[in-house]
Design a protein around this nucleic acid. Sequence first.
RNA 1: CGGAAUGUGGCGCAGUCUGGUAGCGCACUUCGCUGGGGGUGAAGGGGUCGCAGGUUCGAAUCCUGUCAUUCCGACCA
Length: 434
Amino acid sequence: MRLSSCFMPTLRENPAEAQITSHRLMLRAGLIRQTSAGIYIWLPLGLRVLHKIEQIVREEQDRAGAQEILMPTIQSAELWQESGRYEAYGKEMLRISDRHGREMLYGPTNEEMVVDLFRNDIKSYKDLPKMLYHIQWKFRDEIRPRFGIMRGREFLMKDNYSFDIDAEAGRISYNKMYVAYLRTFARLGLVAIPVRADTGAIGGDLSHEFQILAETGESTLYYDKAIEKFELATLTGDIDPDSIEKLQSLYAMEEEKHDPDNCPVAPEDLRSAKGIEVGHIFFFGTKYSEPMNARVTGPDGKLVPVEMGSYGIGVSRLVGALIEAGHDDNGIIWPEVVAPYKVGLINLRLKDADCTAACDDLYHRLTDAGVEVLYDDRDMGAGGKFADMDLIGLPWQLIVGPRGLKDGMVELKCRASGAREQLSLEAALSKLGA
RNA sequence: CGGAAUGUGGCGCAGUCUGGUAGCGCACUUCGCUGGGGGUGAAGGGGUCGCAGGUUCGAAUCCUGUCAUUCCGACCA
């Protein structure tokens, strides 16, 4: 993509309404624009990141055996009246009515809808287990939206729902998601701590929150340092059931529930860090299947309510969390797997024919090789180009100017480490995978 | 919802106390000099001061109402 034809409105100053790092950087780097409290437009650069995160989440869901569907954002109130949550959900649910005066709502979650889907089409234990997920926009009319995309009212969530014949099988589905989550966050280059959690409005008796470690996180966590070692193992392979049980038994608590005087972990093994909640998994058994009459016939011919779990990842929140976990004074530092482009090609002197010819050639060769390049072909000073490129945080900057070019050299800068290398054009190309 | 602020060109702000017809920096347009970390000179364009009433000869400024946004608290992916 040529920057001269790209919609990337970067800001030199911090917008007044943005108080936290990720919100400021998302506005300044031209990833999002706010339209009203907690509701945002995703601009081209931000949308590319969102899509890449979404894709990694999708791949790990598929790998765990879940199947993707897509449920609507607008739901009928009827299903919610059936489950009893229509009143219980309160003002956080955005209620609307259609032209016939029917009560509708903008979905804050999809348990009711997916249970309805399930009960209409699945009748036998032979069809279990099933895991169905979708990645869809949700709306929760938060009392107080804040922190930009981190707690918006409209947000993109992956929500998965598992259906099993009994609690034991349900626990297996739960653990599959538990592992899928560890893998997902590890692929994004994040350290996630699974913390035993309350079940809240969703209900149930088994639940974990996944907290991303970042200095600017909202909650303070205390956990056994052994958790970090376990997570490294998930980078390379699956975890066997015994390991999952062991990992889940390790201590991890939010500050409110952490009692320093009665902590089972020795002080030298205890870690304390700030976290951002990006995922939450629940096993809630028959909480919805019972009232909504979602039953299957078991091997013995008897009808039993299906055992369920639900599993959420805040996809749009992850964009903010990744920035909180990866930035410096100059801007964002994206992990390569989610960066909007891999390489930022900087043409320092557009009016120099040789320089521009070299840049055009590099751009085409990289693009032809499948490398994602954002080519800064704007006619402006070098300072602004460097500042913008640091701000938007692409992993590699390929800097081309007449000075180096007369010796046949270009500069390759790593955004994360700041390391710079003088390379020949061919060496730079091969280093970038072209 | 309880508490606290703020609304003035695209962005950041001054002007409000003490009423007199709107200003600064950045950005933008044109031309020139520049050209490796936001350079520089000249000339321009853009705002009925959130909105609605009121007071006044006159309101960004005073009064009343209203809307929006943000921050702190309880809740959430």
